[in-house]
Design a protein around this nucleic acid. Structure first.
Length: 389
DNA sequence: CGATCCCGCCAACTG
DNA sequence: CAGTTGGCGGGATCG
């Protein structure tokens, strides 16, 4: 019962908000749900139902998370959770791989493209067993050991995968000395847009969609930040690195500053993504397709309406302040204070508000704002002329 | 309008 | 062959 109230309220203020279903938000929720030390395995179905989204969406997230080392494919329907701790290593490997492949570039102006080759294999699973026999790569039970077997178009599919795209996207940052890349450049670079081959895969537009997808989940992890070129207003991405603190990125030289520390991003109010269809699915006869078992309290809850815009489009969902925790550290607190057992709760029924996380987030928002304010106050356009050019 | 990007069809890949 | 993965791009939303 009560499931109808969703539709009811949805149709009432027929306000379908795309923001509430964004990949980034979903990723945040995914992270909130699994980013704890007692997690070591993640099931796709499990995640999908807990988060209240279709399976397809989980794949999107999982793919990019895996590319960054947060997850590792363990088996069908199963991923092992590495957590944020896995990121540094993954990035390191990506960087090495990039160098090895001469992925590096000069990222010139828009007229300076460069192709991104993908030699053969991609990254190694994770563990490097003194590989003298590194032929244990992905799948391929026993591919022809003979020669490279022409082309080896193996993974013709993987060629254009979100995962690979993600890795290349990240490599872009790891290799470049400027940590800001515009959307177009990224698209151009990752596309392997050919110089004169006219209507080559002109789908740059199509690829851009993927880029947005990737950017969204990467953003939700605070690895990057969506912005725009300081004067061109052109959309761009800035590398933030692992948890705000510059990680192992080489380039310590140039690039003036860049207060790389802005934890923000609209984290959602509700972990579950109730199924408010887009306005179309008005299936006449078809029953309401509510996939979430639901029946949590279904009255006035949810209320997507009450969110207020932050200074720059960051929305805060309705959160519920919690007495406990003054948390100042995200991701794995040192003071192993055993909070609630959300894991269980989550299993029992759909979790709704993640008090603790939200509280922490709020603190971070404040912090981020402060730093921004300072940053802005001290010469708005000033640390701008770096990046691309 | 153009920039974003969600949705979900359906093909490729497993098992 | 059924189930799992996940390209791909139509078209709704956002700004």
């Amino acid at each position: 019962m009560s499931s109808s109230s969703y539709l009811d309220s949805a149709s009432r203020h027929h306000t379908y908000s795309r923001k509430q279903k964004s990949l980034g938000l979903l990723c945040s929720n995914f992270l909130k749900l699994y980013n704890r030390d007692d997690i070591e395995s993640v099931g796709l179905d499990e995640a999908a139902s807990k988060l209240g989204v279709e399976r397809r969406r989980i794949y999107d997230i999982v793919n990019v998370l895996e590319s960054v080392g947060v997850l590792a494919r363990k088996a069908k329907n199963r991923y092992s959770w590495k957590g944020f701790d896995g990121i540094p290593k993954a990035l390191q490997e990506l960087k090495e791989e990039a160098l090895r492949e001469n992925f590096c570039c000069t990222l010139g102006s828009s007229s300076n493209y460069l192709k991104v080759f993908e030699s053969d294999e991609d990254e190694k699973p994770s563990i490097e067993q003194s590989g003298e026999n590194a032929q244990e790569q992905w799948s391929s039970k026993d591919y022809p050991p003979s020669d490279v077997s022409f082309k080896k178009q193996m993974d013709n599919r993987r060629e254009k995968s979100l995962g690979l795209l993600t890795q290349n996207f990240v490599k872009l940052f790891l290799c470049t000395n400027a940590d800001m890349v515009s959307l177009d450049d990224a698209a151009r670079l990752l596309l392997g847009d050919s110089p004169n081959s006219a209507q080559m895969r002109n789908n740059s537009a199509a690829k851009v969609r993927r880029l947005y997808d990737i950017a969204n989940v990467l953003s939700s992890m605070n690895l990057i930040e969506k912005t725009h070129q300081t004067d061109t207003r052109k959309p761009a991405f800035r590398w933030l690195g692992v948890n705000g603190k510059s990680d192992s990125v080489p380039a310590p030289c140039d690039k003036p500053l860049n207060v790389r520390q802005s934890n923000k991003r609209e984290f959602g109010s509700d972990i579950t993504n109730i199924d408010f269809k887009r306005t179309k699915a008005l299936s006449p006869i078809d029953e309401k397709v509510i996939k979430v078992p639901t029946n949590c309290e279904a009255s006035g809850q949810h209320d997507p309406m009450q969110q207020e815009k932050g200074s720059r489009g960051y929305v805060y969902g309705p959160f519920r302040p919690v007495p406990l925790t003054k948390g100042n550290d995200r991701e794995k607190e040192k003071t192993g204070k055993r909070v609630h057992d959300w894991e269980n709760l989550a299993s029992a029924f759909r979790p709704r508000y993640h008090n603790q996380a939200l509280t922490e987030l709020f603190a971070h928002y404040m912090e981020a704002w402060k730093s921004w304010y300072v940053e802005v106050a001290q010469g708005t356009k000033h640390k701008a002329h770096l990046a691309i050019h």
